[in-house]
């Protein structure tokens, strides 16, 4: 029974994707976009600035120091 439901859901998606026309182009755009965003942009240009610190205590220390020093 469970397998049957899962199969029906799976075939619903498979048939849906197969019958797409313009949707195939859109999916291509989405995938290219996600690749550019997560692999290219995130990796090369948008690392977490505080990621260079090993733990939360160091991050907290850095930010608190920044917040205090910038007011001086």
């Amino acid at each position: 029974m469970k397998t049957s439901v899962l199969k029906r859901i799976l075939s619903f998606y498979v048939e849906g994707f197969r019958s797409m026309t313009i949707g195939k182009t859109l999916w291509l755009i989405i995938l290219v976009k996600l690749f550019v965003m997560f692999v290219f942009l995130k990796f090369f240009f948008f690392p977490s600035y505080l990621g260079k610190f090993d733990n939360a205590a160091e991050k907290q220390k850095y930010v608190s120091n920044e917040l205090i020093q910038r007011a001086k």
Partner: peptide, 28 residues
């Protein structure tokens, strides 16, 4: 659907910017 597909996830870039450009703010 066309608009949704092109626009989807563009907002995530704002979150990238929070982490990189606005790190004091993000922590705060």
């Amino acid at each position: 659907g066309i608009n949704f597909a092109i626009g989807v996830a563009t907002g995530l870039i704002l979150e990238f910017e929070f982490g990189t450009n606005w790190s004091n703010y993000s922590w705060f």
